[in-house]
Amino acid sequence: CFKERTRHLLREWYLQDPYPNPSKKRELAQATGLTPTQVGNWFKNRRQRDR
């Protein structure tokens, strides 16, 4: 489970761009302490949920 702060950051970025490029994923991974793969999976799952 991700911390509330991490989820908030991910949601904020998702609203700006639901399809982040690899450099954005790396930047967000550094900001949250997650791996770029975890960030990518979160975005993928969130896009699925929004369908």
Rank of each mutant, 00 (worst) to 15 (best):
K25Q: 15
Q38C: 03
A31F: 15
R26D: 15
H8Y: 14
E27K: 04
F2G: 13
Y14E: 03
E12V: 08
L10N: 04
R26C: 14
E4F: 06
R47C: 05
Q16W: 04
A31C: 09
T6V: 15
P20Y: 06
R46D: 04
T32W: 02
Q30V: 13
Y14T: 00
E4V: 07
N41T: 10
Y14W: 02
R7W: 07
R7K: 15
N21H: 15
V39K: 06
D17M: 02
R26I: 08
L9S: 03
A31S: 09
F2R: 08
R26Q: 15
K44V: 06
D50G: 05
N41K: 15
K24D: 11
G33H: 05
D17H: 02
Q38I: 04
K24I: 13
P18Q: 10
W42K: 00
E27T: 06
D17P: 02
T32N: 02
A29L: 01
R5P: 09
T37Y: 10
A29R: 00
R26F: 12
P36G: 05
G40S: 15
R49P: 03
H8L: 15
D50N: 04
L10W: 01
T6K: 08
R47L: 05
N45T: 07
V39P: 00
W42T: 06
Q30G: 09
A29T: 00
R26S: 11
F43L: 01
P22C: 15
Y19F: 11
L9K: 10
W13C: 13
T35A: 02
P22E: 14
F43V: 00
T32E: 06
G40D: 07
T6I: 15
A29M: 03
K25L: 14
A31D: 01
T35K: 06
Q48W: 12
R7G: 10
F43S: 02
L34A: 01
Y14S: 01
R51P: 09
Q38S: 02
R7Y: 11
P22V: 04
V39I: 12
R51M: 07
Q30L: 10
N41R: 15
Q38M: 07
K25M: 12
S23C: 07
R7F: 10
R47S: 02
S23I: 06
R26E: 14
N45M: 08
K24M: 11
H8N: 14
P18G: 02
Q48E: 14
Q16V: 12
A29S: 13
E4L: 10
Q48Y: 15
T32C: 11
R49M: 07
Q16Y: 12
Y19W: 14
E27I: 05
V39R: 01
R11E: 15
Y19E: 08
Y14L: 05
T37P: 05
G40T: 11
K24G: 08
T37N: 11
R5N: 12
W42Y: 01
Q16E: 08
D50C: 04
Y14K: 04
R5I: 11
L28A: 03
R49E: 14
K3Y: 05
D17E: 05
W13M: 12
Q48I: 13
F2M: 15
P18K: 08
R51L: 07
K3V: 06
R47G: 03
K3W: 09
P36Y: 15
F2W: 08
Y19S: 06
R7P: 08
R47Y: 05
R11A: 08
P36S: 11
P20K: 03
L9F: 10
T32R: 03
D50M: 08
Y19A: 06
R5F: 05
L28Q: 01
Y14H: 00
S23E: 15
N45L: 08
P20R: 00
L9H: 05
Q38E: 09
R11Y: 14
R5E: 14
E27P: 02
R11P: 00
R51D: 10
Q48H: 14
E4T: 08
T37I: 12
D50K: 07
T32S: 09
Y14C: 00
G33K: 04
G40C: 09
K24T: 13
L34G: 03
E27D: 11
K25R: 12
N21Y: 04
T35G: 01
R47V: 03
Q38G: 04
L9I: 15
F2L: 13
R47P: 02
V39A: 01
L10G: 00
K44S: 09
R49H: 01
L34I: 05
